[in-house]
């Protein structure tokens, strides 16, 4: 079953005095299977947040359909199955963490004992149990982010929508949250993760979609996409300071920085290339694996122009 299905989602904003239409999301199709961890990627202004707002019915869509666990997104009750962490979670700073969770728990129609039980458990999970009685005005940005995550998990949601979940956290905090998300992934939760931290997405997500200027430009299984683009970068020096023709023939991409040459090749051709480099008496400086999600992202976005 699909946890989330977006069909031809289109959203236009009318900006300025002349009400110039700007397409924030353009005929977007997305399928997020139940139990998957789905990375929604894109540069700033790509339409990620607009997509999330549309899913949560915070904005009206021009065209298209959004189904959450088979139900129409206009049905407000379906949001009971969603946990949402906005990019910067905003709270009433005069309340403390327990009061905050209590208020939102009531909006989820949870009873008081259930709210208390869940709140204590979650505050412990995100490392806020000792500061649960402090007003949120005393919290750091990272602590507010942790509370935002606890709130997103309060209703034990089947679908978690996280917009930059590690934003504002220090490296230790980022690892802790990533481990928590891995745990949730193992529990079978469906996670829609929008993040700029591509290494984080690579570690967590089994599927990704890259959107650019509101359009879907790439999607697929993370592992497959990485495998398809698996390559190796070799840095070397040539004895005659020229790139041998046989090497150029084997390489997918070449570049030169002073006396150092760099060649890129699909990993399947690495052995052939190394053999040829040795044959040509080239001095190999380094061999680095390439084809990270970051490279895929940059290549994809650059391919569609900025």
């Amino acid at each position: 079953m699909l946890a989330l299905y977006l069909e031809e989602l289109t959203k236009t904003y009318k900006l300025g005095f002349k009400r110039t239409p700007i397409k924030a999301v353009d005929s977007l199709y997305l399928s997020v299977p139940e139990g998957s961890t789905f990375g929604l990627l894109g540069p700033n202004g790509a339409g990620k947040t607009t997509t999330i707002k549309a899913i949560l019915n915070l904005i009206k869509i021009d065209r298209g359909r959004i189904r959450i666990f088979g139900e129409d997104h206009y049905n407000y009750q379906v949001r009971g199955k969603i946990g949402f962490l906005p990019e910067q979670p905003y709270f009433n700073l005069s309340l403390n963490a327990l009061q905050t969770l209590n208020f939102y728990g009531q909006l989820f129609r949870m009873n008081q004992s259930e709210i208390r039980k869940r709140s204590f458990h979650l505050l412990e999970e995100v490392g806020l149990e000792e500061t649960s009685h402090l007003p949120l005005s005393k919290y750091s940005k990272g602590m507010l982010q942790r509370l935002g995550l606890a709130l997103a998990l309060l209703n034990n949601p089947s679908l978690l929508i996280l917009d930059e979940p590690t934003s504002g956290l220090d490296p230790v905090g980022q690892v802790e949250i990533r481990n928590l998300l891995l745990k949730l992934k193992k529990e079978g939760k469906t996670i829609l993760l929008s993040s700029h931290l591509l290494t984080e997405v690579e570690k967590l997500c089994d599927q990704i979609a890259i959107i650019h200027k509101g359009k879907l430009v790439l999607s697929g299984l993370t592992e497959e996409l990485l495998r398809e683009r698996e390559k190796v970068k070799i840095h070397f020096k040539s004895p005659n300071k020229k790139l041998p023709a046989s090497i150029k023939k084997l390489a997918a991409k070449t570049s030169q920085d002073g006396a150092v040459f760099t060649v890129e090749t699909p990993s399947s051709k690495t052995n052939d290339l190394v053999r040829e480099l040795i044959k040509q008496r080239c001095q190999i400086i380094s061999i680095k694996p390439g084809g990270s999600l970051e490279e895929i992202f940059i290549e994809t976005v650059a391919g569609y122009g900025n």
Binding site: L58, Y76, V78, R79, F84, P86, Q88, L107, L151
Partner: peptide, 14 residues
């Protein structure tokens, strides 16, 4: 303005 409304309206309420 404080975007607290996002937190509120993302819950199952009208």
């Amino acid at each position: 303005e404080r975007k607290i409304i996002y937190q509120i309206l993302s819950k199952p309420i009208k």
